[in-house]
């Protein structure tokens, strides 16, 4: 087991982490082994600069999460079928105990980080922001030298509310 604060944080907890992911991620089956490796790499990189205490809390929470279902069902979280995992996580999500809610929020945030920061996932969901903006989106929509927002600013000249009454906004949108 890696010492808290040093080395990989979640390598020994891959089972519980992936079990949570099976419920939390929209399409966990879309992640092949390469995708999982990439996700875990992203998560570990994000965790690396965190204080040892934060890493320890995370490990303890994942361990507790895995063991808690033993009390009610005699099986660890990893050992539960997917629908019962989902039911268990829903109970944590609305638990009256704040640290349980916060812990689950933290785990899901890490999983989303590892998932949605993969180019293939971003492409799959249709996210297409481009530094070239409209130019990339519609080709020649903006002609060089015809930029309406290039006016040198003399400020907002009185009415700064910018209220567009009537049909202003839809004209060229």
């Amino acid at each position: 087991m890696a010492e808290p604060g040093r080395g990989p944080v979640l390598s020994s907890l891959r089972g519980p982490l992936r079990a949570v992911a099976s419920v939390v991620l929209p399409s966990p089956e879309a992640l092949d082994e390469e995708g999982w490796t990439e996700a875990e790499k992203i998560i570990e990189k994000a965790l690396a600069p965190k204080p040892a205490g934060v890493k320890l809390q995370l490990r303890l929470f994942l361990r507790a999460l895995n063991l808690l279902p033993l009390v009610t069902s005699g099986r660890t979280f990893v050992g539960l079928p997917r629908d019962r995992r989902a039911a268990f996580l829903r109970r944590l999500h609305s638990s009256p105990i704040m640290p349980l809610r916060r812990g689950l929020w933290g785990i899901r945030t890490l999983l989303f980080m590892g998932y949605y920061n993969q180019p293939r996932v971003r492409e799959a969901i249709g996210y297409g922001a481009d530094p070239w903006g409209w130019t990339a989106h519609f080709g020649e929509r903006l002609e060089e030298g015809n930029r309406a927002d290039d006016e040198s600013g003399d400020g907002m000249e009185g009415d700064q509310s910018g209220d567009r009454s009537g049909d202003g906004a839809e004209a060229d949108a």
Binding site: Q160, R164, A173
Partner: peptide, 14 residues
């Protein structure tokens, strides 16, 4: 607002 070119964005880019 003047120094930093604060203005209303043109409708055609919304």
């Amino acid at each position: 607002a003047g120094e930093n070119n604060v203005h209303l964005f043109p409708e055609k880019e919304i």
